[in-house]
Design a protein around this nucleic acid. Structure first.
Lengths: 164, 164
DNA sequence: CCTTACGTTTACGTAAACGTCAAGGAAGGG
DNA sequence: CCCTTCCTTGACGTTTACGTAAACGTAAGG
C-alpha cells in the first residue's frame, strides 16, 4: 500500500497546466487527465475515482486536479482486464501489488507468490470453462445456421471461421 | 420459459419419499433433493432457491418439496460455470435458453444465434485475457521463485510445471 | 411423543460497484 | 465579463446476488 504513494511527489510534474498533448514529450504520452483515461478505457469519471477511493489508483495532483502517468495508465489497464475476468476490486487490488513489488522482503514475496499461485489455479479453471463454453456455443451457432440454411433462409452475417 | 415447466408433473416421481440413493434406479441418479445439489455444487439452499426465483430453475414438487432431475442438475452445472465466468444471472438465463431450444421458431433461432455470437465474442476476448494474465502470473511466480532460490530459501511447494 | 434432520415461505439486511444529482473551482476563449 | 469545458468533493440512490432470521411443516428414528 505504502509504496504506491511513496513517489507521488517525486516525479517531474510540469509546473504549467498543459500536459498530455504536447508534441515534445519524450515517450508516447507523459500524463493524462481523468477524462482522457475515461474515454480510452470506456469508463466514467466516477468509476475511475471509485478505483482511487478503493486504493487501486493513486494519481498525482496538480493542485486539486488528478494527473495520471504511464504507471497509472498501466494499472488501469490491469484493472479493466481483471474486471473482464470477473474479479472483485479487492482481488484486483491484491493482484496489482504483484506487479509493483521490487522492494519486497522474503516473507512478503512468499506471500505474494501464494496469491499468484492461487490466482493461477483460478484462471486455469476459468480457461477450461471458457474453452468448453466456447466449444458449445460454436456448436449451437453451427446448428442454428444449418437449421436456418436448410429451410432456405438468407443469412445475415457470418461468424469468423474459427470454429472449424 | 413455458417449455421449462411443461412436463413438471409428467415424470415418474416415485410415490415413496426415498429417492436418489436407491440402488436400482436405471441411469446414474434419477432425482435430487436441494441439499444434495447444494453439497455437490458448493452452494447454499438459499442460492439454489434464488436461482429458481430468478427463473433459472424450475424443479418439480413432491407436495411442497423441490425435486430436481438430471435436467435441473445439468442446468445448475451450467449456471455455476456461467458464474465462474463472471456472467450475471440474467445473462445466464438467456444463455440457458440456448440449450433447451428444440421447438424454436425461425425468428427465435435467429435471435438466439445473435445471443450466442455476442457471447462468443465476449468469451473470445475473455480467453485472450485469461491467457495473457496467466502468462504474466507464470512469469511473476518464476521470478519470485528464482529470487527466493537465489537467497537459499527452502521451497514450500512447487507449482505444476505447466509454465515451461 | 419427542427429537433431529431436512425442507418450506416471507421478508428484511447487506456488500460491492458504481450511478446520479448538487454545488462549486479553475482555465481558456470570445 | 461571461460562457463553456473540464474537473472537484460530497452524499444519497440503485442493482445484483445473495445472507439471515423467523416461524413453521414433514418424516424417520429412539
Amino acid at each position: 500500500m505504502d509504496h504506491l504513494a511513496g513517489d507521488i511527489d517525486a516525479r517531474g510534474t510540469e509546473p504549467d497546466g498543459f500536459e498530455g498533448t504536447r508534441p515534445d514529450c519524450r515517450g508516447p504520452v507523459a500524463s493524462f487527465g481523468i477524462g482522457e483515461l475515461a474515454a480510452e478505457f470506456g469508463l466514467t469519471h466516477r468509476t475511475i475515482r471509485h478505483y482511487e477511493e478503493e486504493g487501486l489508483l493513486a494519481p498525482a495532483r496538480s493542485g486539486t486536479v488528478r494527473v495520471y502517468d504511464h504507471r497509472d495508465h498501466a494499472r488501469l489497464a490491469l484493472i479493466c482486464r481483471g474486471k473482464r475476468l470477473g474479479f472483485s476490486l479487492a482481488e484486483i487490488k491484491e493482484f496489482l501489488n504483484l506487479y509493483d513489488s521490487d522492494d519486497a522482503q522474503v516473507e512478503q514475496m512468499r506471500y505474494m507468490r501464494g496469491i499468484a499461485r492461487r490466482r493461477i489455479s483460478a484462471l486455469e479453471q476459468q480457461l477450461a470453462d471458457v474453452q468448453q463454453t466456447l466449444g458449445e456455443l460454436y456448436r449451437i451457432d453451427t446448428q442454428i445456421s444449418e437449421h436456418l440454411g436448410r429451410n432456405g433462409i438468407t443469412e445475415t452475417q457470418d461468424m469468423e471461421e474459427k470454429h472449424s
